[in-house]
Nucleic acid binder design. Sequence first.
RNA 1: GGGCGAUUAGCUCAUUUGGCUAGAGCGCCGCAUUGACGUUGCGGAGGUGACAGGUUCGAAUCCUGUAUCGCCCACCA
Length: 878
Amino acid sequence: MKLPKAYEAKDYEKNIYDLWERSGIFKAHPEIKAERFSMSMPPPNATGTLHVGHSLGIAIQDILARYNRMQGKDVLWLPGTDHAALATNAIMEKKLAEEGTNKHEVGREEFIRRLKELIANSQDTMRAQIRALGASCDWSRERYTLDEALNRSVNETFVKMYGDGLIYRGHRIVNWDPLLETTVADDEVVRVEEKSPFYTFQYGPFQISTARPETKFGDKYVVMHPDDKRYAKYKHGDTFTAEWINGPVSATVIKDKAVDPEFGTGVMTITPWHDMTDFEIAQRHKLDKEQIIDFHGKLLPIADEFAGQPIQEARPKIVAKLKAKGLLVSIDENYVHSIAVNDRGQGIIEPQIKLQWFVDVNKQVVPWKGKILSLKEVMQTVVREQDIAIVPERFKKTYYHWIDNLRDWCISRQIWWGHRIPVWYRSNAEGEEQVYVGLQPPKNDGSEGWHEWEQDPDTLDTWFSSALWTWSTLIDPKLAQDYSLSLEEILSRSLDFQTYHPTSVMETGWDILFFWVARMILATTYMTGQVPFKTVYLHGLVRAEDGQKMSKSKPETMIDPLEVIPKYGTDALRLALISGTSPGNDSRMSIAKIVGQRNFANKLWNIARFIEATVTEPTKSLEQPVPKTPADHWVLTKLQQITEGVSQDLDNFRFAEGYEKLYQFVWNDFADWYIETSKAEPNQPVLQFALTTILKLAHPFAPFVTETIWQELGWEGKGLLAASDWPHVVKGDIKQTKEFEEIQNIVREIRYILSSLQVPRAMFKYEQNAFFHKNIAVIMRLAGLKGIAEFHHGLKLVETRHQLWLDIDELTVHNFAKQLTAKKTEAQASIKQLESRLKNKNYVAQAPAHIVDQTKAQLTEAKTSLEKIKAELTRFAD
RNA sequence: GGGCGAUUAGCUCAUUUGGCUAGAGCGCCGCAUUGACGUUGCGGAGGUGACAGGUUCGAAUCCUGUAUCGCCCACCA
């Protein structure tokens, strides 16, 4: 079959993926005996679309999956999607708003029904996109965070933690998003700098400053540092009366070290209901707390005439009123502080005290390796004791730092979309309440006087279910339906869990190290007694060409994989994402990069085209091609080095380096030297072997073009490249390899001379020896020499072991004298340097022997070269 | 305030535990060319490795300090 001149990715990719998928090679086989490699795909948002960040992750994971598969391992790469509670909930709320209605009008059931419908549609989109990237994942095991088995895992976790006292319900201050009307976790809050007026008011005998006068209605404590001499005459517990916004208030003096005497006046009033620090101060001194702002962001009746007003609207009016009363001391218009914003959804966070569910990270009840630890301590231990490796290592520090600062995790959310909290309440006429925590709803036993059980309306933080992802996805879904079995029994009977957990690698972006990776470690060690994965590989952010974050709001910065793939091919995109990157470091993406890698795919294609035309008699099984020429030995040696190098790089997660080695070899060694040599003296089995090896090595990186070539060549019948073995190596002879390197030196020098002198081709003569007898034809071809001639003058090669003269007229030769002189200077400098190094006794004594030997060899070589240059230069002495 | 990272060729980035003349891609200069590939080939120019010290026979690499940029965490009355 004749290959077309250029590789058109879009003509092949879809079919190739279908071929793979139909063949079943992506499927894991727990029933067979083999080494395992397992990996969970970080589940993308079910309603999302694929962006370049996903593409990078998928590309890396696919490289790992394909490489390990080709090494004969049984590979499980489990795909899936996430219900992304907050984000998805927000989508539906927005939709409803556009329709002029809201969630309360449509009701919980309908709300969820509509979301399920929406998800079902977009999951298909997401699946198609992951396939388009070439992901060799096991679709038969696809999971979704709201699957029944996963939901059971969530409930099991909740119930177990509750039983151990790790989950508790409490009135605590939380980050409240008035826009989405839900709490959000600490690390889902981002800080945005904002300039806002900073007011100083008179408050009784004190001056207090604030940027938020609207929260100050209920303030009745003034706090200062116990050591602040300015306020020494006021004692802790002193009371006074102050004229305030809506009349006089009675206030109490509190001394607390949380106050910074340097900041503002060193005195502040506190609003414990709406400020984290104030809340803590109030807790310490058992002070009253009062809600000022409601959950929609409006002022409560305590604000009197301002009640019912949104805070933004009320603020200037309150200031005006205080000013009218003569209580406004000053305004700093240049005050900059940061305000808290919900990472997903843009709502400005208003801290509130709310009855919420929390995970206690400090309670020591978790058995781990014979000790009883807290969740925090387990998280630290597994990384410290190398049960989990983090690549790159420096993220360990970030990880520890984060854990040190970790507070109890608020897991309840006031949204409808997600895993509902498995807690039921009922009350009786006397106002007593009962709480039931369990996997399934409690039966209404009709107990005298009690109302029916009602489930907690809240849902769980998305990350609570994502935290279970590595193992909840490996549970046998059928077993999970059987509630007569305990989770332990289910796990021990689930073949996938027994076979593939802990997973080998977790590949994800460093930006969700805390959100997700840390929480997987937390929940998985607790629930299964195993780490979720042995290695975490963190990739960097893919940025726009100018180094900016790509964002939908700036479409010109976006590179959309779905546009790039049909145009340049998936391989080009994947290679561009991989090349020139290193773990944990951000990278920049550009169309130019993608074009460059498209060209590489095409290079492979054309190499195959040449070899297809040259290899007229392909053999079926190619174990031992017989090398004949120095070039054959050289290419085999190189192939061996590359195979070993790429394997090592992939074993150590050095994807970019492995790929670069391969790229260099394919383009600069194989195409430019071996193929060119083959035009003179082709060795069909070696060509075939080399191409086979190259396709195998390149397959994890560029699966489509390599498989396409493999299929088009049809050397292995209907066999798939994706299912083939990682290449074995055939050793080339070292002496012959060196001989080819000498050929290269000669060719390079001739090319250099001819190019410098602007002589396109030249006649030549050479010393009569075995080397030239054997290799002169190849040299002529590669160097573009015209033919053999007898002549007297001409130019002699100076940097090679064998003597060869070029027939170039004296006048032109003189132009070369300058170049030779430059070379002479270079050689002399390098000799001087090497000699001084060898004269250094410390160097000779202390450096390793092979380094010293190397230096000596270099010196000899440089001296020889200098002699030749000098000899040649004597001709120009006049 | 605490921490992490970056600074290498015009640009984007590599350089695995300190050791060949610090590499690659793109760009640049010159040349070539109908037969694997113009998505090409050949040759070339281009780097005080941010700066200042130190350790070492030897430093881009280790240590100390400085500068600039980016990020994370905490605080922000």
